[in-house]
Design a protein around this nucleic acid. Structure first.
Lengths: 213, 213
DNA sequence: CATTTTATTGACCCATGGGTCGAACCGCAA
DNA sequence: TTGCGGTTCGACCCATGGGTCAATAAAATG
């Protein structure tokens, strides 16, 4: 008699002690983010998420207030991944605008292809309750502003050349936010390669020395 | 006694005769597309659509099989707006790949900022029932292919210069599909101006003679 | 062990909203 | 006037799924 594959609740994620609460929360969030992303928020029932983790629906309510809060936390984590990543963006002045732009794009692409970033971009903010939506919208506005500032900086220091930074930012965000809809991690292309390609594309469009390569 | 503001059902759209059936269908579809786009498919109830037209919910079922069909028709119209527009795309060979690209982008931008195109891009295909989803996915695949072909043609005839047409197409679609999320018709920028800006951006990235302007 | 605290669950509640039905209404033709 | 399509609606049905509760199990505590 071999072990009948235990099918442990919570998967392999649990081995520690007191911060288990926080860990379990994280596991729920990852699962939710993934499911929200590829099946859609409204197409995902709480039972779906619970089933995937071999737990019951009420257990989810032990860790979260309601379905909205789960979505909100996913968005929050996605936003945080950019605004305060582990290594802060190099401060203005320490390098050219063009260099900062490259760094920003590299980061953003990585973020948007992570579970929470993908969820942030794939699920609309309509589902969120007003207060939470406000916070998410504010967060995204800040990120928008970051890119605009970087572009303007590049224009000022002569390393970038785009007529309308605001609109350019939107084009670039569009290209990036669309990535999760077609890029698949299991393909032959790594995230780093992808971001390199995207950076190349953008740079050809707006780098000041456009005749190189 | 003045007239008590009639509040006619169907608004002003009705004056003709037998094709009224088709007209009313269209009116429903436009209304639905708009509402789906800015409130989301699942956040829009049939009652919402009915109310907006001053008709009742069962009336909708006189014109459509169900909620899915309404969404599907919106997507279908969006797709048709590109694949068979009133003026067909100039056939391969009659002009350079670059010119065809410009024409395609101009068209696509116009389409994606129209009610049905916006709906196509804003609402996911998750909501559609399998069969309809298949048809929509197929339609979108064709459009993808169009752009890829154009890019390759441009590379071949030397008017475009992009290393990876497939990926480039995705970047460009991303930038365009994101337009409805930030562009507002009431602002100071016309759709034509916008598409010109976008085309300029793309061309700087991949036109063969990248040193002009 | 006894007891308190933390986790987990089966069973239930109930508002929402997609979908249906039969009756009524309207324009028109004989 | 009667009849007959095409059209519209009030009232209803009911599955789905978010959310709750009281009761249990599993740790921790002493």
């Amino acid at each position: 008699m071999t072990k009948p594959t235990p099918k442990r609740a919570w998967g392999q994620a649990i081995q520690n002690r007191d911060e288990q609460f926080e860990m379990k929360r994280q596991v729920v969030l990852r699962t939710a983010a993934r499911t929200y992303s590829d099946r859609g928020f409204h197409e995902t029932t709480l039972a779906d998420i619970a089933d995937e983790l071999n737990i019951s629906k009420p257990t989810l309510y032990y860790y979260f207030k309601n379905k909205d809060e789960i979505l909100f936390e996913c968005h929050r984590l996605g936003i945080e991944a950019i605004t305060d990543g582990d290594t802060p963006m190099p401060p203005t002045g320490t390098c050219t605008g063009r260099e900062r732009l490259e760094e920003f794009l590299r980061r953003y692409v990585r973020m948007v292809l992570d579970d929470f970033g993908t969820c942030l971009v794939m699920t609309g903010t309509n589902a969120l309750e007003p207060k939470n939506r406000g916070r998410v919208v504010e967060g995204r506005r800040k990120i928008d502003q970051m890119l605009r500032d970087i572009l303007q900086e590049g224009v000022r220091d002569g390393t970038l050349d785009c007529p309308d930074p605001k609109m350019t930012a939107m084009f670039v965000f569009g290209a990036m936010n669309w990535l999760p809809r077609w890029y698949h991690h299991d393909g032959g292309l790594s995230v780093d390669e992808l971001s390199a390609r995207l950076i190349a594309f953008v740079m050809r469009a707006i780098a000041a020395d456009r005749c190189d390569r």
